[in-house]
């Protein structure tokens, strides 16, 4: 992924063009999805007892009777105007709902990612003492953690921390803007659950990366200079290992989002995952479509940030 021979700005613009194409591909597919509905989309949304008038009204509003490409173009137009219509049942503006819920998911995902960074110093330490007790123990723990799906962690942790130990509340929510302390209180367990898999994964990748880096000649030179181990790790090993770690952090965002569905539904956190689950239940197709599109935008942005990160970390990647 890291290609130092390619001028940096070209890499970024290639990424941007790819991102736009991916966005168009995914949003178009999302629009086309409603054509798969048995019967018609309007029929599906309104249920078996809908009158023809109700169906006609819905079609007029969402255009489910139009060809896919026409519907897609009008959806794109709506997007540019910043108005994606209203949710089917609560009749709130879709864009507002999605962004508000996304902020909640973002908070949890961001905190979980921050917690998972603990894997990096642990990896640094164990990689510099390979096959010692600490290394073996951490490797076993991470291997086991990677085998426990997030939904299992959610169940086990809520049993342990909410039912047996009663350290954290099992469910509930407070807005960060209204009561930050309560918000952090409610968010603790979801964040912990979501970060477990991520921490183990990050640790593993970082450990392998550090082991490889520590075999480089320039590390032998640093050791020959008599530099202390801590200095060598932070000044000579950390930066070379970062590009790979950054890539993995970007890539694992998909896994975190999938994990957030589980975490949010179990702890009743009003985020994107919770929203899409209720949207699925009520066949709120426009809302599902909006969430899919938002996800793609987030991923394109994250990958561009990862590219930017390369340039900050690796002096060989520079705008030419």
């Amino acid at each position: 992924m890291l290609n130092s021979a390619m001028p940096y700005f070209r890499a970024i613009s290639t990424r941007l063009i790819t991102g736009v194409l991916v966005f168009l591909l995914v949003t178009f597919s999302a629009t086309a999805l409603s054509s798969l509905a048995p019967g018609s989309a309007a029929q599906l949304i309104l249920g078996d007892y809908a009158t023809p008038e109700q169906i006609a009204a819905l079609n007029a509003q969402y255009g489910y009777d139009l060809p896919v490409w026409q519907r897609y173009l009008s959806w794109l137009g709506d997007l540019l105007r910043g108005d994606l219509g209203v949710t089917l049942f609560s009749q709130q503006p879709i864009l507002g709902v999605v962004l508000e819920r996304a902020a909640v998911t973002f908070e949890i995902a961001f905190l979980a990612m921050a917690v998972s960074l603990i894997g990096i110093p642990i990896a640094m330490y164990t990689a510099s003492h390979p096959n010692k007790l600490g290394d073996k123990v951490m490797r076993s723990i991470s291997t086991v953690l990677l085998a426990v799906p997030t939904f299992v962690i959610v169940v086990l942790f809520s049993y342990l921390f909410a039912m047996v130990l009663r350290w954290f509340p099992a469910t509930g929510w407070a807005k960060f803007t209204e009561n930050p302390v309560a918000n952090l209180w409610y968010v603790a367990l979801p964040v912990l659950c979501l970060s477990m898999h991520q921490t183990a994964y990050l640790y593993r990748v970082a450990r392998n990366e550090f082991v490889t880096t520590l075999q480089e000649d320039y590390i032998a030179v640093a050791r020959a200079k008599g530099l202390p181990l801590g200095y060598i790790l932070f000044h000579h090993a950390l930066r070379p290992a970062m590009p790979q770690i950054l890539t993995v952090m970007g890539l694992s965002l998909t896994y975190m989002l999938a994990g957030s569905f589980v975490v949010e539904s179990y702890f009743a956190v009003p985020g994107i995952g919770w929203t899409i689950l209720s949207a699925v239940k009520s066949h709120d197709i426009p809302l599902v479509q909006a969430i899919l599109s938002l996800t793609v935008v987030i991923f394109v942005i994250v990958f561009m940030l990862v590219d930017l990160g390369y340039a900050l970390i690796d002096p060989r990647v520079k705008v030419s």
């Binding site: 790819t18 194409l21 991916v22 591909l25 995914v26 999302a30 999805l33 409603s34 798969l36 509905a37 048995p38 989309a41 599906l44 890539l251 998909t254 896994y255 989002l257 999938a258 569905f261 899409i276 689950l277 949207a279 699925v280 066949h283 709120d284 197709i285 599902v288 479509q289 969430i291 899919l292 996800t295 793609v296 991923f299 394109v300």
Partner: peptide, 25 residues
Amino acid sequence: IDLFANALAAMPSTLVVLAFVAVTG
């Protein structure tokens, strides 16, 4: 094919299954 692979990498598969489930059950 790269574009197709990139599009797949930009979404969790769970989300797409859920989107399908919303339409087809």
